[in-house]
Amino acid sequence: MSIQTVLIKLEWSSAGPLSLKKMIQRMAFILLFSSIIGLGANVSLIKKFFSGEYQYGFFSLEEYSSIVFITLGEAEELFATGSALFIDSRAVEDFKEGHIFGAVNIPFVEKKKKDELDMESYPLEGIYVVYCDANECQSSVELAKLLHEKGFQDIRVFFGGWEEWVREGLPVSKEDDSK
């Protein structure tokens, strides 16, 4: 006797085609049940979300402790003192059209596919400012996570990115002027 036959005998299933009403009821039950389990099992995650922990992306700041998000003012100060290496995570074509003066290009999408960073010559203890287009772009965050996993210890993500830098009229370049 199949499970379906047992269910028909218990009148939990029907031998005839399912009425629309019954199908909607079952769908609603499955959706409600999934919602209760899914939300119930992740209450702490939901609390962290509403406390603003995931405003820059869905990852744990505790787990990626070497990553800090900085403002335009903080990025400008690091640029002025020359104490950080700026890393542009956008595609090569975007970098060539214009980038923060002195930045190096590590196009995240291409590098991720080849699984290489080409950062072996850079000290792990240095300060690195990663940026991409603007705050809707995630490649800077993803590259920062990759840098953390490679052992780099001080990674600053400039979330406002290229758009905010250009809007404020700060130094830019189209050439390869990285140090």
């Binding site: 199949s2 499970i3 379906q4 269910l7 299933s13 399912l18 199908m23 079952r26 769908m27 499955i30 959706l31 049940f33 999934s34 919602s35 389990i37 899914g38 939300l39 099992a41 992740n42 995650l45 939901i46 979300f49 995931y54 869905f58």
Partner: peptide
């Protein structure tokens, strides 16, 4: 995005199990 991420996987597992077990196949 967070809401969907928490709910969708459970919908997938439950419906997948129902199909494999042959229960409520239509739904």
């Amino acid at each position: 995005s967070l809401f969907l991420a928490l709910i969708l996987p459970w919908i997938e597992v439950i419906c997948g199990l129902l199909l494999v077990l042959g229960i409520f196949r239509e739904t």
